[in-house]
Design a protein around this nucleic acid. Structure first.
Lengths: 221, 221
DNA sequence: TCAATAGTGTCTATAAGACACTATGCC
DNA sequence: GGCATAGTGTCTTATAGACACTATTGA
């Protein structure tokens, strides 16, 4: 058996999601090269065997290079492959997804609401829709949405994040019971003065053993 | 940007699972080529861009060629990649898994209990263990184990299959309620005479709209 | 009628949802 | 004290598990 043919195109793509105005947005960048030069597309690129220890490492590198973001949560979603999705020939891409809190973005990055995407090459629209579905599904039984919050957050904040991602109202009392159950909260003492004219909420962060990973519940959020 | 380097090895592997004596077994084949010629390994091979419409199609072809099995359920698991897992160089493999009812196997295929695997190259052991974990997890809230049954099956049979995969006892009354809830049963009239000297169980099959896919429950089996 | 397995009805325990209540901080 | 948001207690309802019961077949 011979090594795999040289005409097989192997890339990684990253679906980077964040919340803006309580709605999921995806980060798109302008393509610098042909094909589709100048078009919006997912941040993506070739695997560099000399630099990358794995497809996931390649995705992290590509994300860093194209958006200057290092996400605390990055996971493989799956592959998309076939003879027609890239005009250059048979291609395979390993799609990853990442979640970050809203933050300052470089000028070469645009955020689009996941419901109203522009035309995108390489089946990127399909990838984004599939990832969003997976993220909604996983959010319904895990701590995943915490990665859409800043490092320190309050329960009311996290509550709004869950409601935004899932698109439904969640009772606060049950929500707290389930967060307890997930063991995903570590108390943080406030150092700053809260700003409202009302009772300030307790600050929390993700405990060390959960950073970059998920806590999961059998019976949902 | 240039096409991806030719020294990148891209393959597919298939973890084919079946039940034997109420225990999960994985199908292994003898490698025909170097490296590791003659060793047991997962059925796998290169993607053939001329023949294969996708990585999944490549996996189905490889499975057919190496084991003569066409599984009713075949799904992508994920990728394994890096510079060291294949002695020939940086490699990426798209791992798939398939479930079949126990059946006659060609002589070139051996079934090993997933708990007692031989030494395997290419991180195949790790892949099998990860897939088994995923299959157990998915079985706990979906119709997945039905693909370990023959096309027509009884509820007591399916019950034993679930118990074997999950490794725990399940109450029959609840089990039936949940199967109903999944909508995964279509009544089949028996044509043959049942063989025991006791009440024969009703035969069922998967309804057409579920063949090759899954029914899922929010609250588990 | 018996043996053996198939299949059901129902009681109890647990967890989810709803919602009213109390707590706390700032003005 | 009043307002605004944080956080809790508790009642009701839905679902899961246990287990005893009935059903159906062949001998």
């Amino acid at each position: 058996m011979l090594p795999s043919p040289a005409n097989l195109i192997v890339t990684v793509d990253v679906v980077l999601l964040t919340l803006q105005d309580n709605r999921l947005h995806v980060a798109l960048t302008r393509r610098e090269n042909e094909p589709f030069q100048g078009h919006w597309a997912l941040p993506g690129g070739f695997i560099h065997p000399q630099e990358d220890d794995s497809a996931k490492a390649a995705a992290a590198r590509v994300l860093r290079e194209k958006t200057a973001i290092a996400s605390p949560y990055l996971e493989e979603f799956g592959t998309f492959s076939g003879p027609v999705r890239d005009p250059r020939g048979w291609s395979l891409t390993v799609v990853h997804y990442a979640l970050v809190a809203r933050q300052v973005l470089s000028e070469r990055v645009a955020l689009y609401p996941v419901e109203t995407l522009p035309d995108l090459p390489f089946q990127h629209r399909h990838m984004i829709e599939s990832v969003v579905q997976r993220v909604r599904s996983k959010s319904s039984y895990s701590s995943l949405p915490v990665y859409l919050c800043p490092e320190e957050f309050t329960i009311p904040e996290l509550h709004r994040v869950y409601e935004s991602v899932l698109g439904e109202k969640l009772g606060m009392a049950n929500f707290r019971r389930k967060l307890d159950d997930l063991g995903m909260l570590e108390v943080v003492q406030r150092t700053d003065k809260p700003n409202g004219r009302h009772r300030p909420a307790q600050l929390y962060r993700l405990p060390t053993h959960l950073r970059g990973s998920l806590a999961v519940r059998e019976r949902g959020i």
